[in-house]
Simulated assay, not measured.
Amino acid sequence: MNGGLEVAKTKQQHRKGVIPGWGLTMGFTLTYLSLIVLIPLSVIFLKASTLSWEQFWQIVTTDRVAASLRLSFVSSFIAAAINLVFGLLLTWVLVKYDFPGKRIIDGLIDLPFALPTAVAGISLTAVYAPTGVIGQYLDRFGIEAVYTPLGVVIALTFIGLPFVVRSIQPILHDLDQQYEEAAAVLGANRWQTFWKVILPSLVPAMFTGFSLAFARALGEYGSVVFISGNMPMKTEIAPLLIVTKLEQYDYEGATAIAAIVLIISFFLLFLINYLQWRTSRKYFIH
Score class of each variant (00 low, 15 high):
residue 17 G to R: 02
residue 120 A to L: 04
residue 233 M to Q: 12
residue 151 G to M: 01
residue 162 P to H: 07
residue 246 L to E: 01
residue 51 L to C: 03
residue 217 A to E: 08
residue 73 F to C: 08
residue 72 S to A: 06
residue 226 F to C: 07
residue 128 Y to H: 02
residue 62 T to G: 12
residue 38 L to E: 08
residue 86 F to M: 05
residue 196 K to G: 06
residue 264 I to W: 10
residue 195 W to D: 11
residue 31 T to D: 06
residue 153 V to K: 10
residue 89 L to T: 01
residue 85 V to H: 13
residue 262 L to F: 10
residue 138 L to D: 09
residue 200 P to E: 01
residue 194 F to P: 02
residue 9 K to H: 13
residue 154 I to K: 07
residue 143 I to Q: 07
residue 186 L to D: 10
residue 62 T to S: 13
residue 183 A to G: 02
residue 112 P to D: 01
residue 139 D to I: 09
residue 239 P to G: 00
residue 186 L to C: 13
residue 232 P to M: 00
residue 62 T to N: 07
residue 143 I to A: 03
residue 203 V to Q: 10
residue 19 I to D: 03
residue 151 G to N: 02
residue 104 I to A: 11
residue 148 T to A: 12
residue 5 L to P: 08
residue 105 I to G: 02
residue 220 E to M: 05
residue 247 E to A: 01
residue 38 L to Y: 04
residue 280 S to D: 10
residue 267 F to Y: 12
residue 176 D to S: 02
residue 61 T to W: 11
residue 124 L to Y: 12
residue 192 Q to M: 12
residue 279 T to E: 08
residue 7 V to E: 15
residue 98 D to R: 14
residue 96 K to C: 06
residue 157 T to F: 11
residue 212 L to P: 04
residue 59 I to Q: 04
residue 265 S to P: 05
residue 169 Q to I: 06
residue 113 F to L: 07
residue 21 G to V: 08
residue 188 A to Q: 10
residue 77 F to N: 12
residue 283 Y to R: 04
residue 24 L to K: 12
residue 48 A to T: 05
residue 193 T to D: 07
residue 143 I to G: 06
residue 113 F to N: 03
residue 74 V to D: 06
residue 278 R to S: 12
residue 14 H to Q: 15
residue 195 W to F: 15
residue 103 R to G: 14
residue 155 A to I: 00
residue 108 L to G: 03
residue 217 A to H: 03
residue 232 P to E: 00
residue 6 E to R: 12
residue 81 A to C: 12
residue 74 V to Y: 04
residue 166 R to F: 03
residue 200 P to R: 02
residue 82 I to Q: 04
residue 8 A to E: 14
residue 135 G to D: 01
residue 172 L to S: 07
residue 31 T to S: 13
residue 81 A to I: 06
residue 118 A to R: 02
residue 177 Q to T: 11
residue 199 L to A: 09
residue 286 H to E: 14
residue 45 F to Y: 01
residue 184 A to T: 09
residue 286 H to P: 02
